[in-house]
Protein backbone atom coordinates (compact mmCIF):
# COMPACT_ATOMS: atom_id res chain seq x y z
CA UNK A 1 0.00 0.00 0.00
CA UNK A 2 2.53 2.67 -1.05
CA UNK A 3 -0.07 5.46 -1.36
CA UNK A 4 -1.38 4.89 2.15
CA UNK A 5 2.16 4.90 3.53
CA UNK A 6 2.88 8.18 1.74
CA UNK A 7 -0.29 9.75 3.20
CA UNK A 8 0.63 8.56 6.66
CA UNK A 9 4.14 10.05 6.34
CA UNK A 10 2.57 13.32 5.16
CA UNK A 11 0.29 13.38 8.20
CA UNK A 12 3.30 13.13 10.49
CA UNK A 13 4.95 15.96 8.59
CA UNK A 14 1.81 18.12 8.63
CA UNK A 15 1.34 17.45 12.34
CA UNK A 16 4.92 18.57 12.94
CA UNK A 17 4.43 21.67 10.79
CA UNK A 18 1.14 22.68 12.46
CA UNK A 19 2.36 22.11 16.02
CA UNK A 20 5.74 23.76 15.46
CA UNK A 21 4.18 26.83 13.82
CA UNK A 22 1.67 27.06 16.69
CA UNK A 23 4.57 26.83 19.17
CA UNK A 24 6.59 29.55 17.41
CA UNK A 25 3.54 31.85 17.22
CA UNK A 26 2.81 31.27 20.92
CA UNK A 27 6.47 31.91 21.73
CA UNK A 28 6.52 35.18 19.78
CA UNK A 29 3.32 36.43 21.41
CA UNK A 30 4.68 35.55 24.84
CA UNK A 31 8.15 37.04 24.49
CA UNK A 32 7.47 40.05 22.31
CA UNK A 33 4.04 41.09 23.59
CA UNK A 34 3.16 39.64 26.99
CA UNK A 35 6.62 39.76 28.58
CA UNK A 36 7.26 43.45 27.76
CA UNK A 37 3.76 44.18 29.11
CA UNK A 38 4.57 42.21 32.27
CA UNK A 39 7.76 44.25 32.77
CA UNK A 40 5.77 47.46 32.49
CA UNK A 41 2.88 46.37 34.72
CA UNK A 42 4.87 44.64 37.48
CA UNK A 43 8.51 45.78 37.13
CA UNK A 44 9.17 44.73 40.74
CA UNK A 45 8.79 41.06 39.74
CA UNK A 46 12.47 40.43 39.11
CA UNK A 47 12.34 37.13 37.32
CA UNK A 48 12.97 35.89 33.82
CA UNK A 49 9.77 33.83 34.04
CA UNK A 50 6.81 34.90 31.90
CA UNK A 51 3.59 35.08 33.89
CA UNK A 52 1.59 33.96 30.86
CA UNK A 53 3.58 31.39 28.94
CA UNK A 54 1.45 30.29 25.96
CA UNK A 55 3.97 27.71 24.61
CA UNK A 56 3.16 25.53 27.65
CA UNK A 57 -0.41 25.43 26.38
CA UNK A 58 0.78 24.32 22.95
CA UNK A 59 2.91 21.51 24.35
CA UNK A 60 0.15 20.28 26.69
CA UNK A 61 -2.53 20.32 23.97
CA UNK A 62 -0.12 18.66 21.51
CA UNK A 63 0.66 15.93 24.06
CA UNK A 64 -3.05 15.54 24.85
CA UNK A 65 -3.80 14.97 21.17
CA UNK A 66 -0.67 13.17 19.94
CA UNK A 67 0.86 11.54 23.02
CA UNK A 68 4.63 10.92 22.70
CA UNK A 69 4.42 11.83 18.99
CA UNK A 70 4.19 15.44 20.19
CA UNK A 71 7.91 15.31 21.09
CA UNK A 72 8.76 14.99 17.40
CA UNK A 73 6.03 17.44 16.36
CA UNK A 74 7.11 20.19 18.75
CA UNK A 75 10.89 19.76 18.55
CA UNK A 76 11.54 21.97 15.45
CA UNK A 77 9.35 24.77 16.83
CA UNK A 78 10.96 24.61 20.27
CA UNK A 79 14.44 24.52 18.73
CA UNK A 80 13.82 27.56 16.49
CA UNK A 81 12.15 29.54 19.30
CA UNK A 82 14.92 28.80 21.74
CA UNK A 83 17.57 29.75 19.21
CA UNK A 84 15.98 33.18 19.01
CA UNK A 85 15.89 33.57 22.80
CA UNK A 86 19.21 32.19 23.98
CA UNK A 87 22.59 33.51 23.05
CA UNK A 88 24.35 30.32 24.09
CA UNK A 89 25.64 27.96 21.40
CA UNK A 90 23.32 25.06 20.69
CA UNK A 91 25.72 22.53 22.21
CA UNK A 92 25.54 24.39 25.54
CA UNK A 93 24.24 22.24 28.43
CA UNK A 94 21.66 24.86 29.52
CA UNK A 95 20.36 25.18 25.97
CA UNK A 96 19.82 21.46 25.57
CA UNK A 97 18.54 21.12 29.12
CA UNK A 98 15.77 23.66 28.57
CA UNK A 99 15.05 22.29 25.09
CA UNK A 100 14.85 18.66 26.17
CA UNK A 101 12.83 19.28 29.33
CA UNK A 102 10.46 21.52 27.38
CA UNK A 103 9.57 18.99 24.70
CA UNK A 104 9.37 15.94 26.96
CA UNK A 105 7.60 17.24 30.04
CA UNK A 106 3.99 17.26 28.75
CA UNK A 107 3.80 13.70 27.35
CA UNK A 108 5.71 12.55 30.43
CA UNK A 109 3.04 14.13 32.66
CA UNK A 110 0.24 12.42 30.68
CA UNK A 111 2.06 9.06 30.91
CA UNK A 112 2.81 9.33 34.63
CA UNK A 113 -0.79 10.29 35.44
CA UNK A 114 -2.10 7.52 33.20
CA UNK A 115 0.11 5.12 35.14
CA UNK A 116 -1.60 6.47 38.29
CA UNK A 117 -5.00 5.63 36.70
CA UNK A 118 -5.78 9.20 35.61
CA UNK A 119 -5.98 8.99 31.83
CA UNK A 120 -6.82 12.42 30.44
CA UNK A 121 -5.48 11.89 26.91
CA UNK A 122 -7.69 12.42 23.86
CA UNK A 123 -9.43 9.15 23.07
CA UNK A 124 -12.74 8.35 21.47
CA UNK A 125 -13.87 6.58 24.64
CA UNK A 126 -12.83 9.46 26.94
CA UNK A 127 -15.43 12.22 27.15
CA UNK A 128 -13.77 15.60 26.58
CA UNK A 129 -12.74 17.19 29.88
CA UNK A 130 -10.86 20.48 29.73
CA UNK A 131 -10.51 20.54 33.52
CA UNK A 132 -8.64 17.20 33.33
CA UNK A 133 -6.28 18.69 30.72
CA UNK A 134 -5.70 21.64 33.06
CA UNK A 135 -4.82 19.22 35.88
CA UNK A 136 -2.26 17.49 33.66
CA UNK A 137 -1.00 20.92 32.57
CA UNK A 138 -0.43 21.89 36.21
CA UNK A 139 1.36 18.60 36.85
CA UNK A 140 3.48 19.07 33.71
CA UNK A 141 4.35 22.58 34.87
CA UNK A 142 5.40 21.29 38.30
CA UNK A 143 7.57 18.67 36.61
CA UNK A 144 9.00 21.33 34.31
CA UNK A 145 9.79 23.69 37.17
CA UNK A 146 11.22 20.89 39.29
CA UNK A 147 13.45 19.59 36.48
CA UNK A 148 14.55 23.13 35.54
CA UNK A 149 15.45 23.81 39.17
CA UNK A 150 17.29 20.51 39.53
CA UNK A 151 19.13 20.50 36.20
CA UNK A 152 19.65 24.22 35.64
CA UNK A 153 19.63 25.45 39.25
CA UNK A 154 17.03 28.18 38.70
CA UNK A 155 15.85 30.31 41.63
CA UNK A 156 12.76 29.72 43.81
CA UNK A 157 11.10 32.90 42.53
CA UNK A 158 11.54 31.46 39.02
CA UNK A 159 9.97 28.18 40.17
CA UNK A 160 6.80 30.04 41.19
CA UNK A 161 6.95 32.24 38.13
CA UNK A 162 7.18 29.23 35.80
CA UNK A 163 4.24 27.58 37.54
CA UNK A 164 1.99 30.64 37.33
CA UNK A 165 3.08 31.35 33.75
CA UNK A 166 2.53 27.80 32.53
CA UNK A 167 -0.90 27.38 34.12
CA UNK A 168 -2.19 30.77 32.96
CA UNK A 169 -0.62 30.18 29.53
CA UNK A 170 -2.47 26.89 29.14
CA UNK A 171 -5.76 28.35 30.37
CA UNK A 172 -5.58 31.39 28.11
CA UNK A 173 -4.53 29.35 25.08
CA UNK A 174 -7.58 27.08 25.50
CA UNK A 175 -9.72 30.18 26.03
CA UNK A 176 -8.31 31.87 22.90
CA UNK A 177 -8.87 28.70 20.84
CA UNK A 178 -12.42 28.43 22.17
CA UNK A 179 -13.18 32.02 21.14
CA UNK A 180 -11.57 31.48 17.71
CA UNK A 181 -13.65 28.33 17.09
CA UNK A 182 -16.80 30.15 18.28
CA UNK A 183 -16.13 32.97 15.86
CA UNK A 184 -15.46 30.50 13.05
CA UNK A 185 -18.80 28.83 13.78
CA UNK A 186 -20.53 32.21 13.71
CA UNK A 187 -18.97 32.83 10.28
CA UNK A 188 -20.29 29.50 9.08
CA UNK A 189 -17.03 27.49 8.99
Amino acid sequence: MPHFKCLKNNLWFLEMLAVSIAYILAFFLTHYLFYPLQLKIIPEFESLANLMYLPHGVRVLAAWLLGWRSVVAIAPGAFVSQNLLFEQPIWDFDFFGVFFIGIVVAPLAFSLLKFAKFDASAREENPPCWQCVMVVGIFASLLNALLANLVLGTLTIDFLGYLVGDVSGLFFLVLILMLVFRQMRAWGY
Partner: peptide, 21 residues
Protein backbone atom coordinates in the same frame (compact mmCIF):
# COMPACT_ATOMS: atom_id res chain seq x y z
CA UNK B 1 -4.31 19.24 7.83
CA UNK B 2 -3.91 17.01 10.83
CA UNK B 3 -6.22 13.96 10.98
CA UNK B 4 -9.82 15.16 11.05
CA UNK B 5 -10.45 13.22 14.27
CA UNK B 6 -7.78 15.28 16.05
CA UNK B 7 -9.49 18.52 15.04
CA UNK B 8 -12.83 17.04 16.12
CA UNK B 9 -11.36 16.03 19.48
CA UNK B 10 -10.00 19.53 19.97
CA UNK B 11 -13.41 21.02 19.10
CA UNK B 12 -15.09 18.69 21.59
CA UNK B 13 -12.67 19.80 24.30
CA UNK B 14 -13.29 23.48 23.54
CA UNK B 15 -17.02 22.81 23.46
CA UNK B 16 -16.82 21.28 26.94
CA UNK B 17 -15.16 24.49 28.12
CA UNK B 18 -17.88 26.58 26.49
CA UNK B 19 -20.46 24.51 28.36
CA UNK B 20 -18.65 24.94 31.68
CA UNK B 21 -18.40 28.69 31.18
Amino acid sequence: MIETSKIAQLRRLLHSMEESL
